[in-house]
């Protein structure tokens, strides 16, 4: 990895780690860090991989920089949704819909087989706390565990059908 690649990799990690920050602050932080790297390299008078590596090491891990920034952000503006809009902290915490969704997916599965988890899925998609990606992952988990036993059941029935 040459020097420029090291810088690109570092800025890429910073970008990836900075998702909890508001979009404008994220861009500002990336720009500040890039300027800081350029200034340090100009001061060093060299751009070889070892110098760049040392500069990046002095800066610290991107995740640590973002954590420091996130702590400085007011809680209400810390999180953004998948469209980059700021969300108040209250929207990101537990509410009646979230608790009901979790209960229906777990206890509801025993009290109301099939109907309980189905209602839980509806509440999951109505909730504004989880992002669309998180909702998709949860839905996929449910579907995969639903589908696998059904395929197994069909296979058993198919075998019984051909066996008799």
């Amino acid at each position: 990895m040459d020097g420029d690649e090291l810088v690109r990799d570092y800025l890429g990690r910073l970008e990836a780690a900075s998702w909890p920050l508001p979009p404008d602050r994220r861009a500002e932080l990336a720009s500040e860090v890039r300027e800081h790297i350029e200034a340090a390299l100009a001061e060093a008078g060299r751009r070889d991989p070892v110098t760049i590596h040392n500069v990046l090491e002095r800066l610290g891990r991107p995740e640590e920089i973002v954590a420091t920034e996130a702590d400085a952000e007011p809680l209400a503006t810390r999180f953004t949704d998948e469209l980059g809009r700021r969300m108040p902290a209250s929207v990101r915490s537990w509410g009646a819909i979230e608790i009901a969704a979790i209960l229906l997916l777990t206890v509801g599965a025993f009290a109301l087989p099939l109907v309980g988890p189905a209602m839980g899925m509806v509440l999951l998609w109505l909730s504004k706390v989880w992002t669309t990606r998180e909702k998709l992952v949860a839905t996929l988990i449910v579907l995969i565990i639903f589908v696998l036993p059904i395929i197994g059941l069909l296979a058993v029935e198919g075998r019984a059908g051909t066996g008799s």
């Binding site: 915490s93 997916l105 599965a109 309980g116 839980g120 998180e134 565990i145 059941l153």
Partner: peptide, 30 residues
Amino acid sequence: MDFDVVRLLIPLAGIPAAIFLIVVLVRRRR
């Protein structure tokens, strides 16, 4: 696969999803 096993697995499908959703919320609040 035994039919009783399938009947047991179907209600359990929501539990891993619920665990995932709880973990997401707990990690976000830290």
